[in-house]
Design a protein around this nucleic acid. Structure first.
Length: 229
DNA sequence: AGATCCTAAGAAGAACTGTT
DNA sequence: AACAGTTCTTCTTAGGATCT
């Protein structure tokens, strides 16, 4: 069995000593590393993992841009490295959709381990359509897991189906009837609207922020496109 | 008043364990 | 290894409480 080196792109605005040390360490770990600037934003992602070195003054602005860019490809993972960042900076990046955040100064070995972990998640079972992303949520369709704010939430099959359809609707409200058709399927099984209510309730209990699923009165439910923090 | 939320209870199936 | 019994998990329904 041949082993292909893991491809990693390091994105940096300003190349610092810390960045150089990071690149050297990744290469020592037999990773195929490319260093680029934010101009990478203009191109579709080609590597499985992108390590983004962020100055805290840029972090908040750039975070959303990076995530929207990487979301166009369901196989790109994002790790933010924040120079002199605060816990609040980490929270902002995780909430924006980064898969992981490592505050500098960091242990190179720890970062390498985190890269491998994100790579495993991103390339789960090698499926190209195994993940759905929307805002701060990433849904692993195969592993039945939802990642929010760096937390992993296990879902049952019906919870997974409901979240999947809400994410696919991308903020558009879905009625209970639509959710029954899409998540439960259009088989002979008779399921009442209350079943939808209860799955939504269970999901809200599991989510770190229950308001991520909004009730649209007289219409149905939708994934929140914005959330007050 | 109608819509939504929440809790409790029961059914069904899956997973686990012990015995042969 | 195969089977049976037990336990656990998931899903659904019903009904009352709360909200708009």
């Amino acid at each position: 069995m041949s082993i292909h080196p893991l491809r990693v792109t390091v994105v940096t605005i300003v190349t610092t000593q810390s960045t150089q040390r990071l690149v050297a360490e990744l290469r020592r770990e037999a990773m195929q590393v490319e260093v680029t600037t934010a101009s990478v934003l203009d191109q579709p992602p080609v590597d499985p993992v992108y390590v983004v070195s962020l100055d805290p003054s840029f972090a908040r602005i750039l975070a959303e841009r990076f995530v929207s860019w990487a979301s166009t490809d369901l196989n790109a993972g994002l790790i933010g490295v924040v120079e002199d960042g605060s816990p609040q900076d980490n929270e902002v990046l995780l909430a924006a959709g980064f898969d992981d955040v490592v505050p500098a100064p960091f242990s190179a070995r720890e970062l390498v381990a985190r890269i491998r972990a994100v790579h495993r998640r991103v390339n789960w079972k090698g499926a190209s359509n195994g993940r759905l992303r929307f805002g701060e949520m990433t849904l692993d369709l195969h592993g039945r897991e939802l990642w929010i704010d760096g937390k992993t939430i296990s879902l049952t099959s019906i919870e997974l189906a409901v979240v999947r359809e809400l994410i696919k609707a991308r903020g558009k409200p879905l009625s209970r009837t639509e959710l029954l058709d899409l998540a439960w399927g259009e088989g002979d099984l008779e399921v009442s609207d209350r079943a939808v209510d209860n799955v939504i309730l269970r999901l809200r209990r599991k989510l770190p922020h229950p308001d991520l699923i909004e009730t649209v009165r007289s219409v149905g439910f939708r994934i929140a496109t914005t959330r007050a923090t």
